[in-house]
């Protein structure tokens, strides 16, 4: 029930923000669309805490900010590699441990790895993620597990 209400509020707010008009017809059409999307989601059985990770709450915003800063740092590293006349790239495949207990946590971790330039998650297994890294240093810094711990804390404290 909580998921349903949360998704309905999110969808309707999205509708209002996109239109920016508040005529009765548009608002009614928005309510109709919200109900239709909710019905489709219920039929697809994705109305659960995997579909709407509401429990993450405000901590997700803090994580997003930290991730943006990480992205900026590693984007700068990759840009230096691209623009250097003799780039010393050392592509590496590593298997990093994922200590998250839920699927949402693992998805967040794998997506964060892919979002940071220089590392791509190629395969997600139960307790590990196969990562392709552009340089060996990038792979090593990922293996230290700072990001892994942060994602685990994010999903645990929600």
């Amino acid at each position: 029930m909580r998921q349903r209400v949360g998704l309905a509020i999110a969808l309707f707010t999205f509708w209002l923000l996109l239109s920016g008009h508040f005529t009765p017809f548009l608002v009614a059409a928005g309510i109709g669309s919200t109900v239709a999307v909710l019905a489709v989601c219920a039929r697809m059985r994705i109305l659960d805490s995997d579909g709407q990770p509401l429990h993450l709450g405000a901590r997700a915003v803090g994580y997003w900010l930290w991730l943006s800063w990480e992205m900026a740092k590693s984007a700068w590293d990759v840009t230096k590699l691209i623009l250097s006349p003799q780039p010393q790239i050392t592509p590496t495949l590593v298997k990093v441990r994922a200590t998250q207990s839920t699927e949402v946590g693992r998805v967040i971790y794998a997506n964060s790895i892919t979002l940071t330039p220089g590392t791509i998650s190629l395969e997600v297994e139960n307790t590990a993620i196969i990562v392709h890294a552009l340089t060996r240093e990038g792979a090593c810094s990922l293996e230290e597990g700072d990001m892994d711990r942060r994602v685990t804390r994010l999903e645990a404290n929600g």
Partner: peptide, 27 residues
Amino acid sequence: LAGAFGIIRFPDLYTRMHASGVIDPFG
């Protein structure tokens, strides 16, 4: 621009994906 340059320059698909990662969400 740097990411687009990297997509041209890097040697194989996976390394090009890293260059694309500089553009794709970040730039």
